[in-house]
Structure formats: C-alpha cells, structure tokens
C-alpha cells in the first residue's frame, strides 16, 4: 500500500492559490522529498497531510485514510514536525518528551520505551534535564526531531528539518533521519529548499514551484532526464522549461 496518495490537491488562501492540483504518491518505507523555493507550497502540502488545514479541492490519503473524513485515524498514524516548532519553555527536555509520549503509549512499558528512544535520538544527554528555554536553536531542533521519530510513526512528516541549523546540527539531524528510516521502516515525507541535502537523503523527490509539481523521480532519474550534475542545476533547468 502507498503511504501517501495525493490527488489533484488544490489550496486557496483567501485569493492566493498556494497549491494548484498537485498529485504524487509516497511508497511505504521510502524517504520522499518535496523540494522547491520559499513559497512553493511545501508547508501547505504537509499541513494538509498532517490534518491541520483543509484542501480547497482534491484529496489526500495516508495509508488509505482520508485526511479530511478520517482525520483522527490519520493523526494516530503520523508524526508531524512543523517548519517552526517550539517546545514548552517551562518544561525540561525530558518532560517534553514524556508529555508527547503519553499521547501514544498504551501502557507504562511502552511509555518508558518511547521516552528512552527519544532520549537516544536527541543525543542531548544530561541537558535534557534543563528547561527548554535554555537550549540553543540546534538543540531545540534535535529535541523536536527526537519527539517526532521516537513514537515510531508509520509516516513521519518533516517540514524543513534542517533549515537554519549549523553544519554540525544539520549533519546530525540528517544522519538520524536516514538511520531511523532504514532501521525502523518508517516512511518519511520531508520538505527542503536545500537541493543537495535532498539528493543525499531521499529515495525519490518531487520538485515543486508556485504550487505546481514540475517533476517526480529518483535523484538519478531526474539528473539523467535533465542531463545535469546535481539537483540544483536540474531544478533551474526544469523551472526555465516550465
């Protein structure tokens, strides 16, 4: 079964057409990247899949469940990392992980396992005992990535997981996503405006601009079809052809 099926999805924010009939599918177990410049419609797409906003027309399924009519089932399956995500300032990192884990855990044992996993993924060690407000931007993002992945969702939706991070933190986050997807069979749908990152991380990518999908394929397929050397060049070429 496909993890995500998006058909003719359109979103209009009072007058602004953010998505214009986009369609794509994400297969189970793959890391799928939505790439495109700012304002392309990536966040809008991911928010619709995360059941936060409603499409104007078209439909979207997550493991066969409609994001509109079966929103609460979809929320059980996914774990969503927003583009800008904060944690509660007055809680410590570990308390935040526990807060999230409680929504997913069936019993005490499961709860313990989830939190343990979160601690491991974050790699923040003793700093988890400190209040979130004392964290650097990179630490906050690692905490967010940890809380998203620790619950072992069937689908992880990550909106620009490395945007704005320094090399060290960005590298760490990328490695974690890659490792997690391969060892736990989690399907990942992520967005990025960093073409090179996506080329490294994703099995397949969709290039999106001004609310339309320009091309879909594995990085290799796209490079071959556009006869370019990297996705950045490929994107520029596709945009100028469109």
């Amino acid at each position: 079964m496909d993890a995500v099926v998006v058909e003719e999805l359109t979103k209009v924010y009072d007058g602004v057409k953010a998505l214009d009939k986009i369609s794509f599918t994400v297969r189970e177990g793959e890391i799928f990247g939505l790439i495109g410049p700012n304002g392309a419609g990536k966040t809008t797409t991911l928010r619709i899949l995360a059941t936060l906003i409603k499409p104007t027309s078209g439909r979207a399924l997550v493991f066969g469940h409609d994001v509109m009519s079966e929103a609460s089932i979809v929320r059980e399956i996914i774990s969503y990392l927003p583009e800008e995500a904060g944690a509660y300032r007055n809680l410590s990192g570990i308390e935040y992980l526990e807060f999230i884990a409680r929504f997913y855990a069936e019993d005490g044992e499961a709860f313990r396992r989830i939190v343990e996993e979160g601690v491991k993924i974050s790699g923040l060690g003793e700093r988890l005992r400190d209040k979130v407000k004392t964290y650097s931007k990179g630490m906050k993002r690692r905490l967010q990535v940890a809380r998203t992945l620790m619950v072992k969702p069937r689908l992880a939706i990550l909106d620009e997981p490395t945007a704005g991070l320094d090399v060290v933190h960005a590298f760490y986050v990328r490695e974690i996503i890659k490792e997690y997807a391969s060892t736990h069979g989690v399907t990942v749908l992520l967005s990025s405006h960093n073409m090179l990152e996506v080329e490294y991380l994703c099995n397949r990518v969709a290039m999106i601009d001004k609310g339309r999908i320009l091309c879909i394929g594995t990085p290799k397929e796209i490079l071959e079809s556009t006869s370019t050397h990297n996705l950045e060049e490929a994107f520029m070429k596709v945009v100028s052809n469109a």
Partner: peptide, 14 residues
C-alpha cells in the same frame, strides 16, 4: 507565540 500549537494539533488527541 511559542510555535507549539501546530504540533499539539497534529497529535492523536481530539
């Protein structure tokens, strides 16, 4: 303001 709402709304809670 603290950008926690989006996460909260995507959690499995009504």
């Amino acid at each position: 303001e603290e950008k926690t709402l989006e996460t909260l709304l995507s959690l499995p809670v009504s």
